[in-house]
Design a protein around this nucleic acid. Structure first.
Length: 441
RNA sequence: GGCCCCAUCGUCUAGCCCGGUCUAGGACGACAGGUUUUCAUCCUGUUAACUUGGGUUCGAAUCCCAAUGGGGUCACCA
């Protein structure tokens, strides 16, 4: 069987980290069996559409390497009249009815108990179209992510709106019409859709055709509140993480393991590896919390896995334009084991490009630096030459290595912590080092 | 509140479906040690969990029920 999955976002802003995970699973599920991954834009609510969101959505998906095979946009499909025709067919078949009640918005208390619509038996011939939910029926399906049967009494299901009075379809209609039409075999979506699944099941059944399987993913919970990630309190958008210096492959790997796990508990997966090893049996049932510790670890792993040449274009935007590639290529190996986020490169490597800020030195420090200045003026300008001469002089003076090198480090880099000192000095060059020492003496 | 989902170390999880091999394994974190003239990387070790109560059974983390706890959802939004 060829698996066809879809990722169906609304163009209402940035890409939510949970949506990325949904898209990733849908992608690898399809690709594992050589199937198709569809990108479908659900923009039937024009009020919510955000300018530019459609483009940025596609850009971000590309950054993560989630390439789709087919692309659809519901507002365009709406123009062909398919949703309206589908709704009218349901009315004709007795599975839906026209309704002219005023639109009911979300209740302020969040509760609504009205299951049967007052218009359902009025025989109206125009207005919005609602689903005629049967009474006393058990509606059930097998969730392929949870691997279990889930059911409801139809008496708990309300007569949901399928077609709005502006002739645009709601999600319940549009998504189901499309999933059937596009021959989607597996609907994979967030847990928040689970309560409305009986509506979708009914629509799917009444529409007819090859019924897709449905699977619900866990919700990702905030590490601080334990509730669903919220835009106000948590960083929820992929763009935010990218901007902070996280690598796409690290974010993808992290998110893949939040809600899915392989039997052998392997941790590191590139996208192609995930495609190869993916198994729908590994979906989790419990909601995970979004703790950054492991993401940081992943980022370090992927950072160190990259060659210096691969890192070059990534750190390029973080340093002054005047810095040439050759110099950057010397600096990268010294810095890459010392950073967790790409963005930290700037701070750690700064002293290579700009004069360190002045520091205060004790009289002892100045004695150290005076000696260092003399040695560095004449010694062989090699790692061996610098280190052996410095160390033997420290010993001759009866000093300790630690405070001596701490002072030298501070004078050269302006910081108590830095990349390896000798290597850094070699990169900076004798003239510049002597110049910096002279400044503080 | 109704309905639905869920419940193993601080976190992500393996084991659960097919009860015994589980004095419950791995990873992250934390802590300790080693390497390192700093900080990291890297290596080694330590820490720490089956929500509770009933059943079923010779035997339950694993099966059943209940309680408790957590999450989600209840729009002409997706």
């Amino acid at each position: 069987m060829t698996i066809r999955t879809r990722f169906a976002p609304s163009p209402t802003g940035f890409l939510h980290i949970g949506s990325l995970r949904t898209a990733l699973y849908a992608y690898v599920l399809a690709k594992h069996s050589g199937g198709d991954f569809i990108l479908r834009i659900e923009d039937t609510d024009q009020k919510r559409e955000v300018e530019g969101a459609l483009q940025s959505l596609q850009d971000v998906l590309h950054k993560f390497g989630l390439q789709w095979d087919e692309f659809y946009i519901q507002s365009a499909r709406h123009q062909t009249g398919i949703y309206q025709q589908a709704a009218e067919k349901l009315v004709k078949d007795g599975h839906a009815f026209y309704c002219q009640c005023p639109a009911r918005n979300a209740q302020s208390d969040g509760y609504s108990t009205l299951m049967r619509d007052p218009c359902r038996d009025l025989g109206l011939t125009k207005g919005a179209i609602k689903l005629r939910v049967p009474d006393n029926e058990t509606i059930s399906y097998h969730d392929f992510a949870h691997r279990k049967e889930i059911s409801w009494s139809s008496n708990q299901v309300y007569d949901a709106t399928l077609l709005k009075s502006d002739t645009f379809p709601t999600y319940a209609l549009a998504a189901m019409v499309d999933d059937l039409d596009m021959k989607v075999t597996h609907i994979l979506r967030g847990h928040d859709w689970l309560p409305s699944t009986p509506i979708h099941l009914l629509v799917l059944r009444y529409l007819g055709g090859e019924q897709p399987q449905i699977g619900h993913l866990t919700d990702i919970l905030s590490s601080t509140t334990g509730k669903k990630l919220s835009k106000r309190r948590d960083s929820v958008f992929c763009e935010q993480y990218l901007e902070q210096g996280y690598l796409p492959e690290a974010i993808l790997n992290f998110v893949a393991l939040l809600g899915w796990a392989p039997k052998d508990n392997r941790e590191l997966y590139t996208l192609p590896e995930l495609v190869e090893h993916f198994d729908a049996q590994g979906f989790q049932d419990a909601n995970p919390r979004f703790f950054l510790d492991k993401l940081n670890w992943f980022n370090g792993q992927y950072l160190r896995r990259k060659s210096d040449a691969e890192l070059l274009p990534l750190v390029r935007p973080l340093v002054p334009n005047s810095v040439n590639d050759e110099l950057l290529l010397q600096i990268i190996p010294l810095v890459k084991t010392r950073i967790t986020l790409l963005s930290e490169f700037k701070n750690l490597a700064e002293f290579f490009f700009t004069e360190p800020k002045p520091s205060s030195f004790t009289p002892e420090d100045l004695a150290y630096l005076k000696m260092a200045y003399e040695i560095l003026t004449t010694c062989d300008w090699t790692k061996e030459g610098i280190e052996s001469n410095l160390v033997s002089q420290v010993k001759d003076h009866g000093w300790k290595n630690t405070p001596f090198f701490a002072a030298l480090r501070l004078a050269v880099t302006g910081k108590p912590v830095s990349p390896p000192l000798t290597e850094s000095m070699l990169i900076l060059g004798r003239d510049l080092i002597l110049e910096r020492l002279q400044k503080v003496l």
